[in-house]
Computed example of a mutant assay.
Amino acid sequence: MTDPTGPDDAFDLDLDEPAAPGGGEGFAGFPAPPPRWEDLTDVEETSTMGELTAWVAWLMDRYGLVDVPPACWADHGAVVEELSALRAAREAAYDPMAQPGDALAWHAQLPDALDRIGQRWAPRCRGGDHRPPYRGGDTDDARTPTSPPA
C-alpha cells in the first residue's frame, strides 16, 4: 500500500528548477510567467526579445492585426510588458494541463490588451510612424514627451 504522506511521483515537482527567462517551459514543465525584463542579462534580453518579436509577428498575422501593436512596439516598454504578459497567458491557456475554457478566456482578454496598447501605451504610433509616449499615457499634443531614463 502507498504511504499517503510520502512522495507521489505524480506530484514530485522540482521546485528548484527556474523558469526560462523569456518564456517557454517554467519549472517542472509548467508554462513560464512573463519575463522580468529588468532581471534579464543582455544575452537573455536579446534572445527573449527575438522570441517575442516572432510571436508578435505570428499574432498579427493570425488575427489580421494592422496598426496595433504598432511597428515600433519594441520602443515602448509598456507595450513590451503587455505583449509579454499576453504571450505568457496564451501559452498557459493552450498548455495541455489548461482547463477547456482557458483559451476562450484568453480570447476575451485579447481585445482589452490590444485596446490598452493602441489607446494608452502607444496611441500616436500608426502607419509605421513612431512618436514618443506622453507622460501618463496622455495624448494631448501640447504636453511634453517623456524623456528617456538617464
Rank of each mutant, 00 (worst) to 15 (best):
A88V: 06
D140R: 06
P70Q: 01
L40M: 12
G23I: 00
P21G: 02
P21S: 02
D9N: 06
D39N: 10
A32G: 04
G118K: 01
A89Y: 08
R116C: 10
L65V: 05
G137R: 03
R135N: 05
A105C: 11
L114E: 02
G24D: 10
A103Y: 12
A19K: 01
T53W: 05
G26R: 05
H130D: 09
H130P: 01
P4E: 03
A71I: 05
W73Q: 00
P145V: 07
C125Q: 08
W37N: 00
H130S: 05
M1R: 13
G26I: 06
L114S: 09
P96F: 07
P96Q: 01
A20S: 15
W73R: 05
P18G: 00
R87Q: 13
R36T: 12
D102Y: 07
Q99V: 10
M1N: 06
G136W: 04
H76K: 10
A103W: 06
P31M: 01
A150F: 12
R116Y: 12
T2V: 13
A142M: 07
D115Q: 14
T41I: 05
M1T: 12
G77S: 13
Y134W: 09
Q119N: 11
D115L: 14
G77R: 13
L83E: 03
V66A: 09
D39A: 15
A122L: 04
H130N: 04
P18V: 02
L104A: 15
A19S: 15
A122Y: 02
A105Y: 10
P148D: 11
Q109G: 14
T146W: 08
P35V: 03
T53S: 15
P34V: 00
V80N: 05
A71Q: 14
Q99M: 14
P133N: 07
D95W: 15
H107S: 11
V79W: 02
V56F: 02
P33S: 08
H107P: 01
P21Y: 03
W73H: 03
M49D: 10
G64P: 04
V56R: 02
A93C: 11
P123N: 08
W121V: 04
A57L: 06
A93Q: 06
Q99N: 14
